[in-house]
């Protein structure tokens, strides 16, 4: 997502070698598709405001005739919603901070420093991107069990501080490589060390890439289900995804309340998405991340 690429993309986005008619058809198709994409989310919100008695009523109502905002206040007491919300934050904040700090540091070393064997280590970073999580799932669980960390947030948080993920290291290294070296040379002549150059020269110019990493990581950890499923056993410790899954098993007939709780659970990600929207839609292009 270098700045040049953004500008170039905008410039080429102009009219294509196709007539006004085909453009009109394309616009129509794109709008229709967008409506299809929005329908499930709209249905979630619509259901969340209905009285349970009208949830199954036909014909379907998109705008509830008797909207019931109390569903939301009830949903957050049917399950300890705010407790789970807080737990999710307790995990997400240190994970995002740890990911950013450690992936920036590691990526900087790989992008700019010379040391014997460092190139080979970078190949291992790339290999780590390809590794499917399932292969390490069971032994990692056994490791954290041996350490006595099962039932705590440590297995969810600590790995983020150990490099911050191969993909993020790769992304940041690629970004750092696009920064011209001259300023660093000047800072070095002034007597600044590596850490000082990282703080004063590299990081201030890398906020676009760093915000991509932070936003992706937040969404990833906020929605993570497998990690909490493996490592959290006490209901008071559940994060939101686990709490919702648990809620489903018990109150699976109360769809309106379930949708209210789900909508609330999605809210932080939607918020982060709109805040870092540009970073997202262009970051996915830069990185090929899915």
């Amino acid at each position: 997502m270098s700045r040049e690429a953004t500008v170039r993309g905008a410039a080429v986005l102009g009219p294509r070698a196709s007539g006004p008619w085909s453009r009109r058809v394309a616009a129509l198709l794109a709008v229709a598709g967008a409506v299809v994409v929005l329908v499930p989310l709209a249905w979630m919100v619509s259901t969340s405001f209905k009285p349970e008695s009208q949830v199954f009523r036909t014909p379907l109502e998109w705008i509830p005739s008797q909207p019931r905002p109390q569903n939301y206040s009830e949903a957050v007491t049917l399950i300890p919603f705010w407790r789970y919300f807080l737990n999710s934050m307790i995990v997400a904040v240190p994970v995002v901070v740890g990911t950013v700090l450690s992936s920036v540091a590691v990526a900087y070393a790989f992008a700019r420093m010379r040391a014997p064997g460092l190139r080979w280590l970078f190949l291992l970073v790339l290999a780590g991107i390809m590794l499917p999580g399932e292969v390490t799932l069971v032994p990692s669980f056994l490791l954290f069990k041996t350490l006595g960390w099962v039932g705590t947030y440590l297995p969810l948080i600590v790995p983020a501080w150990l490099g911050g993920g191969a993909f993020n290291i790769f992304l940041l290294r690629q970004y750092f490589l696009t920064i011209p070296r001259e300023q660093e040379e000047a800072a070095r002549v002034d007597g600044h060390g590596f850490l000082s150059i990282l703080m004063r020269v590299i990081i201030p110019q890398s906020w676009p890439a760093i915000s991509v990493v932070a936003a992706f990581q937040f969404v990833g950890v906020w929605n993570d289900f497998v990690g909490p499923l493996l490592y959290l056993s006490d209901q008071d410790e559940y994060t939101l995804p686990l709490g919702l899954a648990f809620y489903r098993d018990i109150y699976s007939t109360q769809w309106a309340h379930l949708m209210a709780a789900s909508a609330l659970a999605l809210l932080p990600c939607v918020l982060v998405f709109f805040l870092a929207q540009k970073a997202f839609t262009e970051g996915v292009v830069l990185t090929g991340r899915r």
Binding site: L38, V219, N223, F225, L244, C269, V270, V272, F273, F280
Partner: peptide, 9 residues
């Protein structure tokens, strides 16, 4: 949007 709202919800 669907890419950011995933998981259990």
């Amino acid at each position: 949007l669907p890419a950011v709202v995933s998981g259990v919800a």
